[in-house]
Design a protein around this nucleic acid. Sequence first.
DNA 1: TTGATAATAATCGTTAACGATTTATAACAG
DNA 2: CTGTTATAAATCGTTAACGATTATTATCAA
Lengths: 236, 236
Amino acid sequence: MPSNSLKNMENNSTEPDEHLIVNRIYAAVMEQRLAPNTKLSEPKLCESFGVGRMRVRRALLLLASQGIVDLQSNKGAYVACPTPGEADEVFSARKLIEAGIVRDLAKRSDETAIAGLRHHIEKEDRAREVGERHEIIRLSGEFHVELANAYGNSVLNKTIRELITRTSLIVGLFGTNRSATCPENEHAQILDAITAGETERAAELVCHHLEHIQAGLNLQHQQPNEDDLVAILGSR
Amino acid sequence: MPSNSLKNMENNSTEPDEHLIVNRIYAAVMEQRLAPNTKLSEPKLCESFGVGRMRVRRALLLLASQGIVDLQSNKGAYVACPTPGEADEVFSARKLIEAGIVRDLAKRSDETAIAGLRHHIEKEDRAREVGERHEIIRLSGEFHVELANAYGNSVLNKTIRELITRTSLIVGLFGTNRSATCPENEHAQILDAITAGETERAAELVCHHLEHIQAGLNLQHQQPNEDDLVAILGSR
DNA sequence: TTGATAATAATCGTTAACGATTTATAACAG
DNA sequence: CTGTTATAAATCGTTAACGATTATTATCAA
Protein backbone atom coordinates (compact mmCIF):
# COMPACT_ATOMS: atom_id res chain seq x y z
CA MET A 1 0.00 0.00 0.00
CA PRO A 2 2.16 2.81 -1.22
CA SER A 3 -0.30 5.53 -0.33
CA ASN A 4 0.40 5.26 3.38
CA SER A 5 4.16 5.33 3.04
CA LEU A 6 4.33 8.83 4.47
CA LYS A 7 3.77 7.37 7.89
CA ASN A 8 7.29 5.97 7.84
CA MET A 9 8.77 9.43 8.02
CA GLU A 10 8.64 10.79 11.53
CA ASN A 11 10.65 13.80 12.51
CA ASN A 12 14.09 13.35 14.01
CA SER A 13 13.83 16.83 15.50
CA THR A 14 17.58 17.21 15.32
CA GLU A 15 18.06 19.45 12.31
CA PRO A 16 16.60 22.93 12.32
CA ASP A 17 16.54 23.24 8.56
CA GLU A 18 13.80 22.21 6.24
CA HIS A 19 16.38 20.18 4.37
CA LEU A 20 15.32 17.31 6.58
CA ILE A 21 11.92 17.26 4.95
CA VAL A 22 13.46 17.54 1.52
CA ASN A 23 15.82 14.67 2.19
CA ARG A 24 13.09 12.45 3.54
CA ILE A 25 10.97 12.95 0.47
CA TYR A 26 14.03 12.48 -1.69
CA ALA A 27 14.69 9.14 -0.03
CA ALA A 28 11.07 8.05 -0.27
CA VAL A 29 11.00 8.82 -3.98
CA MET A 30 14.33 7.12 -4.58
CA GLU A 31 13.11 3.92 -2.92
CA GLN A 32 9.85 4.20 -4.82
CA ARG A 33 7.82 4.38 -1.64
CA LEU A 34 6.29 7.59 -3.00
CA ALA A 35 4.74 6.97 -6.38
CA PRO A 36 4.30 9.69 -9.01
CA ASN A 37 1.12 11.72 -8.71
CA THR A 38 0.84 11.05 -5.00
CA LYS A 39 -0.72 14.04 -3.33
CA LEU A 40 1.43 15.73 -0.73
CA SER A 41 -1.11 17.68 1.26
CA GLU A 42 0.25 20.28 3.60
CA PRO A 43 -1.68 19.22 6.70
CA LYS A 44 -0.53 15.62 6.33
CA LEU A 45 3.07 16.65 5.91
CA CYS A 46 2.86 19.02 8.86
CA GLU A 47 1.64 16.20 11.03
CA SER A 48 4.11 13.65 9.68
CA PHE A 49 7.10 15.84 10.33
CA GLY A 50 5.75 17.73 13.30
CA VAL A 51 6.55 21.14 11.87
CA GLY A 52 4.64 24.25 10.91
CA ARG A 53 3.14 24.90 7.53
CA MET A 54 5.86 27.32 6.55
CA ARG A 55 8.57 24.69 6.73
CA VAL A 56 6.55 22.29 4.65
CA ARG A 57 5.82 24.97 2.14
CA ARG A 58 9.46 25.91 1.78
CA ALA A 59 10.44 22.28 1.36
CA LEU A 60 7.82 21.81 -1.35
CA LEU A 61 9.07 24.89 -3.16
CA LEU A 62 12.60 23.54 -3.18
CA LEU A 63 11.43 20.15 -4.38
CA ALA A 64 9.42 21.83 -7.11
CA SER A 65 12.45 23.78 -8.27
CA GLN A 66 14.18 20.46 -8.77
CA GLY A 67 11.37 18.80 -10.68
CA ILE A 68 10.56 16.33 -7.93
CA VAL A 69 7.13 17.67 -7.09
CA ASP A 70 4.59 19.54 -9.13
CA LEU A 71 2.93 22.56 -7.55
CA GLN A 72 -0.51 23.11 -8.98
CA SER A 73 -2.05 26.42 -8.15
CA ASN A 74 -4.86 26.18 -5.63
CA LYS A 75 -4.78 22.41 -5.88
CA GLY A 76 -1.73 21.36 -3.98
CA ALA A 77 1.57 19.58 -4.36
CA TYR A 78 1.86 16.27 -6.16
CA VAL A 79 4.81 13.99 -6.73
CA ALA A 80 5.92 14.83 -10.24
CA CYS A 81 4.88 12.79 -13.26
CA PRO A 82 7.70 13.21 -15.77
CA THR A 83 6.65 13.22 -19.39
CA PRO A 84 8.47 11.06 -21.95
CA GLY A 85 10.18 14.21 -23.15
CA GLU A 86 11.44 15.03 -19.70
CA ALA A 87 12.58 11.45 -19.30
CA ASP A 88 14.69 11.83 -22.43
CA GLU A 89 16.23 14.98 -21.08
CA VAL A 90 17.05 13.39 -17.75
CA PHE A 91 18.74 10.40 -19.32
CA SER A 92 20.55 12.59 -21.80
CA ALA A 93 21.88 14.82 -19.05
CA ARG A 94 22.86 11.85 -16.93
CA LYS A 95 24.79 10.28 -19.77
CA LEU A 96 26.70 13.45 -20.41
CA ILE A 97 27.57 14.15 -16.78
CA GLU A 98 28.17 10.64 -15.56
CA ALA A 99 30.29 9.79 -18.60
CA GLY A 100 32.44 12.80 -17.80
CA ILE A 101 32.71 11.76 -14.18
CA VAL A 102 33.83 8.19 -14.79
CA ARG A 103 36.19 9.36 -17.50
CA ASP A 104 37.95 11.60 -15.02
CA LEU A 105 37.77 8.98 -12.29
CA ALA A 106 39.49 6.50 -14.58
CA LYS A 107 42.16 9.09 -15.23
CA ARG A 108 42.82 9.61 -11.55
CA SER A 109 42.70 6.01 -10.27
CA ASP A 110 42.03 7.05 -6.71
CA GLU A 111 42.54 3.90 -4.63
CA THR A 112 40.33 4.76 -1.67
CA ALA A 113 37.49 5.94 -3.89
CA ILE A 114 37.64 2.72 -5.88
CA ALA A 115 37.65 0.69 -2.70
CA GLY A 116 34.54 2.50 -1.51
CA LEU A 117 32.75 1.81 -4.76
CA ARG A 118 33.78 -1.83 -4.67
CA HIS A 119 32.38 -2.06 -1.18
CA HIS A 120 29.12 -0.57 -2.38
CA ILE A 121 28.79 -3.13 -5.16
CA GLU A 122 29.24 -5.90 -2.61
CA LYS A 123 26.37 -4.44 -0.61
CA GLU A 124 24.27 -4.47 -3.75
CA ASP A 125 25.05 -8.14 -4.36
CA ARG A 126 24.15 -9.08 -0.82
CA ALA A 127 20.86 -7.19 -1.00
CA ARG A 128 20.06 -8.99 -4.24
CA GLU A 129 20.60 -12.35 -2.55
CA VAL A 130 18.33 -11.49 0.32
CA GLY A 131 15.75 -10.00 -2.01
CA GLU A 132 14.80 -6.82 -0.15
CA ARG A 133 13.10 -4.85 -2.91
CA HIS A 134 13.36 -1.36 -1.41
CA GLU A 135 16.95 -2.00 -0.41
CA ILE A 136 17.89 -3.18 -3.89
CA ILE A 137 16.31 -0.15 -5.50
CA ARG A 138 17.95 2.21 -3.06
CA LEU A 139 21.43 0.78 -3.43
CA SER A 140 21.07 0.49 -7.16
CA GLY A 141 20.49 4.20 -7.49
CA GLU A 142 22.93 5.06 -4.76
CA PHE A 143 25.79 3.59 -6.73
CA HIS A 144 25.50 6.47 -9.15
CA VAL A 145 25.42 8.92 -6.28
CA GLU A 146 28.57 7.29 -4.96
CA LEU A 147 30.23 7.79 -8.32
CA ALA A 148 29.55 11.51 -8.06
CA ASN A 149 30.67 11.40 -4.44
CA ALA A 150 33.97 9.87 -5.44
CA TYR A 151 34.46 12.67 -7.90
CA GLY A 152 34.21 15.06 -4.98
CA ASN A 153 32.43 17.96 -6.65
CA SER A 154 29.46 19.15 -4.65
CA VAL A 155 27.91 20.91 -7.64
CA LEU A 156 27.81 17.77 -9.74
CA ASN A 157 26.87 15.79 -6.68
CA LYS A 158 23.74 17.82 -6.15
CA THR A 159 22.79 17.71 -9.81
CA ILE A 160 23.27 13.97 -10.04
CA ARG A 161 21.27 13.34 -6.91
CA GLU A 162 18.46 15.35 -8.39
CA LEU A 163 18.59 13.48 -11.67
CA ILE A 164 18.72 10.07 -10.05
CA THR A 165 15.67 10.91 -7.98
CA ARG A 166 13.84 11.95 -11.12
CA THR A 167 14.96 8.71 -12.71
CA SER A 168 13.23 6.84 -9.93
CA LEU A 169 10.03 8.64 -10.81
CA ILE A 170 10.51 7.80 -14.47
CA VAL A 171 11.10 4.14 -13.76
CA GLY A 172 8.09 4.11 -11.48
CA LEU A 173 5.94 5.52 -14.24
CA PHE A 174 7.19 3.77 -17.33
CA GLY A 175 9.09 0.84 -15.91
CA THR A 176 8.12 -2.71 -16.67
CA ASN A 177 7.74 -5.21 -13.86
CA ARG A 178 11.38 -6.10 -13.26
CA SER A 179 13.12 -3.01 -14.59
CA ALA A 180 13.18 -1.16 -11.29
CA THR A 181 16.86 -1.80 -10.66
CA CYS A 182 19.96 -1.35 -12.74
CA PRO A 183 20.97 -4.39 -14.78
CA GLU A 184 23.20 -6.35 -12.43
CA ASN A 185 26.95 -6.68 -12.89
CA GLU A 186 27.07 -3.59 -15.12
CA HIS A 187 28.10 -1.55 -12.12
CA ALA A 188 30.99 -3.93 -11.60
CA GLN A 189 32.05 -3.65 -15.21
CA ILE A 190 32.10 0.13 -14.98
CA LEU A 191 34.21 0.00 -11.88
CA ASP A 192 36.58 -2.46 -13.54
CA ALA A 193 37.11 -0.05 -16.41
CA ILE A 194 37.76 2.76 -13.95
CA THR A 195 40.22 0.65 -12.02
CA ALA A 196 42.02 -0.31 -15.22
CA GLY A 197 42.26 3.33 -16.20
CA GLU A 198 40.40 2.74 -19.46
CA THR A 199 38.79 6.16 -19.68
CA GLU A 200 36.84 5.87 -22.90
CA ARG A 201 35.61 2.38 -22.16
CA ALA A 202 34.37 3.48 -18.76
CA ALA A 203 32.50 6.36 -20.34
CA GLU A 204 30.95 4.10 -22.96
CA LEU A 205 29.92 1.55 -20.37
CA VAL A 206 28.12 4.20 -18.36
CA CYS A 207 26.29 5.44 -21.43
CA HIS A 208 25.27 1.95 -22.39
CA HIS A 209 24.28 1.19 -18.84
CA LEU A 210 21.92 4.15 -18.83
CA GLU A 211 20.64 3.25 -22.26
CA HIS A 212 19.85 -0.23 -20.97
CA ILE A 213 17.77 1.25 -18.20
CA GLN A 214 16.06 3.48 -20.73
CA ALA A 215 15.44 0.51 -23.03
CA GLY A 216 13.64 -1.25 -20.20
CA LEU A 217 11.00 1.45 -20.18
CA ASN A 218 7.75 1.65 -22.06
CA LEU A 219 7.37 5.33 -22.82
CA GLN A 220 4.20 4.90 -24.83
CA HIS A 221 1.73 3.67 -22.27
CA GLN A 222 2.19 5.73 -19.17
CA GLN A 223 0.78 3.13 -16.84
CA PRO A 224 -1.75 4.64 -14.46
CA ASN A 225 -0.32 3.74 -11.11
CA GLU A 226 -2.23 2.20 -8.25
CA ASP A 227 -2.63 5.49 -6.46
CA ASP A 228 -4.65 6.85 -9.32
CA LEU A 229 -7.02 3.93 -9.06
CA VAL A 230 -7.32 4.39 -5.34
CA ALA A 231 -8.11 8.04 -5.87
CA ILE A 232 -10.70 7.24 -8.51
CA LEU A 233 -12.42 4.42 -6.65
CA GLY A 234 -12.24 6.15 -3.31
CA SER A 235 -10.57 4.64 -0.26
CA ARG A 236 -13.45 3.95 2.10
CA MET B 1 27.68 53.23 -7.84
CA PRO B 2 26.83 49.57 -7.69
CA SER B 3 25.06 49.80 -4.36
CA ASN B 4 22.04 51.55 -5.85
CA SER B 5 21.66 49.16 -8.74
CA LEU B 6 18.60 47.61 -7.19
CA LYS B 7 16.70 50.70 -8.20
CA ASN B 8 16.92 49.63 -11.82
CA MET B 9 14.67 46.71 -11.21
CA GLU B 10 11.07 47.78 -11.08
CA ASN B 11 8.28 45.29 -11.31
CA ASN B 12 6.77 44.50 -14.67
CA SER B 13 3.69 43.17 -12.91
CA THR B 14 3.05 40.77 -15.76
CA GLU B 15 4.22 37.48 -14.31
CA PRO B 16 2.51 36.06 -11.26
CA ASP B 17 5.42 33.87 -10.28
CA GLU B 18 8.32 34.77 -8.07
CA HIS B 19 10.56 33.59 -10.87
CA LEU B 20 10.52 37.18 -12.01
CA ILE B 21 12.40 38.24 -8.91
CA VAL B 22 14.81 35.36 -9.28
CA ASN B 23 15.49 36.21 -12.89
CA ARG B 24 16.06 39.87 -12.17
CA ILE B 25 18.60 39.08 -9.51
CA TYR B 26 20.16 36.51 -11.78
CA ALA B 27 20.56 39.13 -14.48
CA ALA B 28 21.92 41.72 -12.09
CA VAL B 29 24.53 39.28 -10.80
CA MET B 30 25.46 38.17 -14.30
CA GLU B 31 26.05 41.76 -15.39
CA GLN B 32 27.95 42.39 -12.17
CA ARG B 33 25.56 45.12 -11.12
CA LEU B 34 25.12 43.23 -7.86
CA ALA B 35 28.47 42.68 -6.18
CA PRO B 36 29.16 39.81 -3.79
CA ASN B 37 28.29 40.47 -0.17
CA THR B 38 25.66 43.05 -1.10
CA LYS B 39 22.87 42.93 1.41
CA LEU B 40 19.47 42.05 0.02
CA SER B 41 17.14 43.31 2.69
CA GLU B 42 13.57 42.16 2.48
CA PRO B 43 11.90 45.57 2.80
CA LYS B 44 14.06 47.00 0.01
CA LEU B 45 13.29 44.09 -2.27
CA CYS B 46 9.58 44.28 -1.47
CA GLU B 47 9.55 47.92 -2.47
CA SER B 48 11.72 47.42 -5.55
CA PHE B 49 9.52 44.69 -6.94
CA GLY B 50 6.24 45.85 -5.49
CA VAL B 51 5.39 42.49 -3.98
CA GLY B 52 4.75 41.10 -0.54
CA ARG B 53 7.36 39.74 1.78
CA MET B 54 6.40 36.14 1.07
CA ARG B 55 7.32 36.39 -2.58
CA VAL B 56 10.66 37.93 -1.78
CA ARG B 57 11.33 35.29 0.81
CA ARG B 58 10.55 32.46 -1.58
CA ALA B 59 12.77 33.98 -4.23
CA LEU B 60 15.63 34.29 -1.77
CA LEU B 61 15.20 30.68 -0.73
CA LEU B 62 15.42 29.55 -4.34
CA LEU B 63 18.48 31.68 -4.95
CA ALA B 64 20.08 30.30 -1.81
CA SER B 65 19.47 26.73 -2.97
CA GLN B 66 21.47 27.60 -6.06
CA GLY B 67 24.36 29.18 -4.25
CA ILE B 68 23.63 32.68 -5.53
CA VAL B 69 22.72 34.21 -2.19
CA ASP B 70 23.73 33.36 1.33
CA LEU B 71 21.00 33.26 3.96
CA GLN B 72 22.37 34.09 7.38
CA SER B 73 20.07 33.31 10.24
CA ASN B 74 18.57 36.40 11.85
CA LYS B 75 20.88 38.60 9.81
CA GLY B 76 19.46 38.57 6.34
CA ALA B 77 20.28 37.61 2.76
CA TYR B 78 23.54 38.56 1.12
CA VAL B 79 24.83 38.04 -2.36
CA ALA B 80 27.07 35.00 -2.06
CA CYS B 81 30.82 35.23 -1.67
CA PRO B 82 32.20 32.05 -3.20
CA THR B 83 35.31 30.67 -1.56
CA PRO B 84 38.31 29.65 -3.65
CA GLY B 85 37.30 26.04 -3.09
CA GLU B 86 33.81 26.68 -4.40
CA ALA B 87 35.32 28.51 -7.35
CA ASP B 88 37.33 25.41 -8.19
CA GLU B 89 34.23 23.28 -8.05
CA VAL B 90 32.29 25.61 -10.28
CA PHE B 91 34.97 25.70 -12.94
CA SER B 92 35.50 21.97 -12.71
CA ALA B 93 31.79 21.30 -13.17
CA ARG B 94 31.57 23.77 -16.03
CA LYS B 95 34.48 22.15 -17.84
CA LEU B 96 32.93 18.73 -17.54
CA ILE B 97 29.45 19.74 -18.65
CA GLU B 98 30.32 22.28 -21.31
CA ALA B 99 32.94 20.00 -22.84
CA GLY B 100 30.28 17.33 -23.15
CA ILE B 101 27.86 19.77 -24.70
CA VAL B 102 30.18 21.06 -27.41
CA ARG B 103 31.38 17.55 -28.12
CA ASP B 104 27.83 16.48 -28.87
CA LEU B 105 27.10 19.69 -30.73
CA ALA B 106 30.08 19.07 -32.98
CA LYS B 107 28.76 15.57 -33.61
CA ARG B 108 25.35 16.84 -34.66
CA SER B 109 26.33 19.84 -36.78
CA ASP B 110 22.94 21.50 -36.44
CA GLU B 111 22.92 24.32 -39.00
CA THR B 112 20.38 26.60 -37.39
CA ALA B 113 21.97 26.25 -33.96
CA ILE B 114 25.37 27.13 -35.38
CA ALA B 115 23.90 30.12 -37.18
CA GLY B 116 22.40 31.36 -33.93
CA LEU B 117 25.72 31.05 -32.13
CA ARG B 118 27.50 32.82 -34.97
CA HIS B 119 24.99 35.61 -34.71
CA HIS B 120 25.64 35.87 -31.00
CA ILE B 121 29.39 36.19 -31.50
CA GLU B 122 28.76 39.03 -33.91
CA LYS B 123 26.77 40.79 -31.22
CA GLU B 124 29.67 40.31 -28.85
CA ASP B 125 32.07 41.85 -31.35
CA ARG B 126 29.83 44.85 -31.90
CA ALA B 127 29.46 45.41 -28.16
CA ARG B 128 33.23 45.26 -27.78
CA GLU B 129 33.62 47.96 -30.40
CA VAL B 130 31.15 50.23 -28.70
CA GLY B 131 32.63 49.50 -25.30
CA GLU B 132 29.50 49.04 -23.19
CA ARG B 133 30.91 47.29 -20.16
CA HIS B 134 27.70 45.73 -18.81
CA GLU B 135 26.69 44.65 -22.28
CA ILE B 136 30.04 43.01 -22.94
CA ILE B 137 29.93 41.12 -19.67
CA ARG B 138 26.38 40.02 -20.25
CA LEU B 139 26.93 38.78 -23.77
CA SER B 140 30.20 37.16 -22.84
CA GLY B 141 28.50 34.98 -20.28
CA GLU B 142 25.43 34.52 -22.39
CA PHE B 143 27.41 32.78 -25.10
CA HIS B 144 27.82 29.83 -22.79
CA VAL B 145 24.13 29.88 -22.01
CA GLU B 146 23.48 29.86 -25.74
CA LEU B 147 25.68 26.80 -26.09
CA ALA B 148 23.51 24.98 -23.59
CA ASN B 149 20.45 26.36 -25.34
CA ALA B 150 21.61 24.95 -28.65
CA TYR B 151 21.97 21.59 -26.99
CA GLY B 152 18.31 21.79 -26.15
CA ASN B 153 18.32 20.08 -22.78
CA SER B 154 16.48 22.06 -20.13
CA VAL B 155 18.17 20.22 -17.28
CA LEU B 156 21.65 21.12 -18.44
CA ASN B 157 20.41 24.54 -19.39
CA LYS B 158 19.32 25.29 -15.86
CA THR B 159 22.51 23.93 -14.36
CA ILE B 160 24.72 25.89 -16.71
CA ARG B 161 22.83 29.09 -16.11
CA GLU B 162 23.34 28.61 -12.40
CA LEU B 163 27.04 27.95 -12.81
CA ILE B 164 27.61 30.91 -15.10
CA THR B 165 25.92 33.18 -12.60
CA ARG B 166 28.16 31.87 -9.88
CA THR B 167 31.10 32.43 -12.20
CA SER B 168 30.14 36.09 -12.40
CA LEU B 169 30.36 36.27 -8.63
CA ILE B 170 33.73 34.57 -8.68
CA VAL B 171 35.10 36.93 -11.30
CA GLY B 172 33.70 39.85 -9.36
CA LEU B 173 35.51 38.69 -6.25
CA PHE B 174 38.82 37.44 -7.55
CA GLY B 175 38.99 38.97 -11.00
CA THR B 176 41.74 41.34 -11.96
CA ASN B 177 40.94 44.63 -13.67
CA ARG B 178 40.39 43.44 -17.23
CA SER B 179 39.43 39.80 -16.64
CA ALA B 180 35.70 40.43 -16.41
CA THR B 181 34.96 39.09 -19.87
CA CYS B 182 35.92 35.94 -21.72
CA PRO B 183 39.14 36.21 -23.74
CA GLU B 184 37.97 37.43 -27.13
CA ASN B 185 37.98 35.29 -30.24
CA GLU B 186 38.05 32.10 -28.19
CA HIS B 187 34.32 31.84 -28.59
CA ALA B 188 34.76 32.00 -32.34
CA GLN B 189 37.39 29.29 -32.25
CA ILE B 190 35.08 27.00 -30.30
CA LEU B 191 32.30 27.58 -32.76
CA ASP B 192 34.65 26.91 -35.65
CA ALA B 193 35.58 23.54 -34.17
CA ILE B 194 31.91 22.71 -33.70
CA THR B 195 31.13 23.71 -37.27
CA ALA B 196 34.00 21.59 -38.57
CA GLY B 197 32.75 18.63 -36.59
CA GLU B 198 36.00 18.30 -34.68
CA THR B 199 34.52 16.93 -31.48
CA GLU B 200 37.62 16.48 -29.35
CA ARG B 201 39.15 19.76 -30.40
CA ALA B 202 35.95 21.61 -29.52
CA ALA B 203 35.93 19.97 -26.10
CA GLU B 204 39.55 20.87 -25.50
CA LEU B 205 39.01 24.44 -26.59
CA VAL B 206 36.18 24.87 -24.13
CA CYS B 207 38.28 23.46 -21.31
CA HIS B 208 41.18 25.73 -22.17
CA HIS B 209 38.85 28.66 -22.53
CA LEU B 210 37.55 28.13 -19.01
CA GLU B 211 41.05 27.59 -17.71
CA HIS B 212 42.06 30.91 -19.23
CA ILE B 213 39.29 32.62 -17.33
CA GLN B 214 40.37 30.82 -14.19
CA ALA B 215 43.98 31.79 -14.79
CA GLY B 216 42.95 35.44 -14.90
CA LEU B 217 41.85 35.23 -11.27
CA ASN B 218 43.77 35.95 -8.13
CA LEU B 219 42.39 33.45 -5.65
CA GLN B 220 44.74 34.50 -2.87
CA HIS B 221 43.70 38.04 -2.13
CA GLN B 222 39.96 38.16 -2.04
CA GLN B 223 39.64 41.84 -2.85
CA PRO B 224 37.19 43.62 -0.55
CA ASN B 225 34.74 45.14 -2.96
CA GLU B 226 33.56 48.74 -3.00
CA ASP B 227 30.27 47.94 -1.30
CA ASP B 228 32.14 46.84 1.77
CA LEU B 229 33.85 50.19 1.93
CA VAL B 230 30.58 51.99 1.52
CA ALA B 231 29.16 49.96 4.35
CA ILE B 232 32.17 50.68 6.53
CA LEU B 233 32.37 54.39 5.84
CA GLY B 234 28.64 54.93 5.90
CA SER B 235 26.73 56.57 3.07
CA ARG B 236 25.74 59.92 4.51
C1' DT C 1 37.95 63.33 21.08
C1' DT C 2 37.56 58.50 21.98
C1' DG C 3 35.51 54.45 23.90
C1' DA C 4 31.97 52.04 26.09
C1' DT C 5 27.22 51.48 27.44
C1' DA C 6 22.20 52.03 27.14
C1' DA C 7 18.12 52.99 24.48
C1' DT C 8 15.92 53.09 20.18
C1' DA C 9 14.86 51.58 15.64
C1' DA C 10 14.91 48.27 12.09
C1' DT C 11 14.88 43.66 10.41
C1' DC C 12 14.16 38.80 10.60
C1' DG C 13 11.62 34.35 11.68
C1' DT C 14 7.48 32.47 12.98
C1' DT C 15 2.63 31.89 14.10
C1' DA C 16 -2.07 32.78 13.52
C1' DA C 17 -5.99 34.20 10.96
C1' DC C 18 -8.66 35.47 6.83
C1' DG C 19 -10.74 35.07 2.08
C1' DA C 20 -10.75 32.17 -2.12
C1' DT C 21 -10.75 28.15 -4.50
C1' DT C 22 -11.32 23.45 -4.74
C1' DT C 23 -13.10 18.95 -3.31
C1' DA C 24 -16.25 16.01 -1.03
C1' DT C 25 -20.84 15.10 0.59
C1' DA C 26 -25.83 15.28 0.52
C1' DA C 27 -30.23 16.22 -1.41
C1' DC C 28 -33.20 15.86 -5.20
C1' DA C 29 -35.22 15.59 -10.00
C1' DG C 30 -35.66 12.64 -13.88
C1' DC D 1 -30.83 3.99 -10.12
C1' DT D 2 -28.40 7.83 -12.51
C1' DG D 3 -27.16 12.48 -13.09
C1' DT D 4 -27.37 17.12 -11.42
C1' DT D 5 -27.37 20.77 -8.18
C1' DA D 6 -26.54 22.78 -3.72
C1' DT D 7 -24.52 22.70 0.59
C1' DA D 8 -20.63 21.80 3.63
C1' DA D 9 -15.88 20.66 4.52
C1' DA D 10 -11.23 20.89 3.57
C1' DT D 11 -7.23 22.89 1.53
C1' DC D 12 -4.55 26.45 -0.46
C1' DG D 13 -2.53 31.28 -0.98
C1' DT D 14 -1.95 35.48 1.14
C1' DT D 15 -1.81 39.14 4.54
C1' DA D 16 -1.16 40.89 8.99
C1' DA D 17 0.72 40.77 13.51
C1' DC D 18 3.80 39.28 17.21
C1' DG D 19 8.28 38.08 19.74
C1' DA D 20 13.30 37.84 19.08
C1' DT D 21 17.44 39.10 17.39
C1' DT D 22 20.36 42.42 15.33
C1' DA D 23 21.90 47.04 13.90
C1' DT D 24 21.91 51.88 14.78
C1' DT D 25 21.84 55.95 17.38
C1' DA D 26 22.35 58.59 21.53
C1' DT D 27 24.34 59.32 25.98
C1' DC D 28 28.02 59.63 29.06
C1' DA D 29 32.63 58.75 31.30
C1' DA D 30 37.59 58.93 30.62
